[in-house]
């Protein structure tokens, strides 16, 4: 039998890895992928709580559906912005893009 804490610790680990990716990836696409990891960890925790505490209650799963959709929209816009930046600056490495430096 899998206890809820095991699943949640997996989620926490997964989330931390995503944070690490967001903070260190130089490539913009890498950052976007790390953000997907963060989204997934959140989804997983929703599903877990839903299944363990409110099995007959579908809100948790519906929420995950919404998150997936929003993540899709997010990724689409993110990639479009990325293409724009790439066309303007010929670069996708965020540590070289500092035109907003104060």
């Amino acid at each position: 039998m899998i206890s809820i804490k095991e699943v949640l610790i997996l989620v926490a680990l997964f989330f931390s890895i995503g944070v690490y990716g967001v903070l260190t990836r130089r490539n913009t696409i890498g950052i976007l992928m790390s953000i997907e990891l963060l989204f997934n960890s959140a989804c997983l925790s929703f599903v877990t709580f839903s299944k363990y505490y409110y099995p007959a209650f579908l809100k948790g799963q519906i929420f995950v559906l919404f998150i997936i959709s929003v993540a899709a929209a997010d990724t689409v816009v993110g990639l479009a912005l990325l293409l724009c930046i790439y066309r303007k600056l010929k670069d996708v490495y965020v540590d070289r893009i500092n035109i907003m430096k104060g």
């Binding site: 967001v22 965020v94 540590d95 893009i97 500092n98 907003m100 430096k101 104060g102």
Partner: peptide
């Protein structure tokens, strides 16, 4: 001003 590096990360 130094904190405004312009670097997203």
């Amino acid at each position: 001003r130094k904190t405004q590096t312009g670097l997203v990360q």
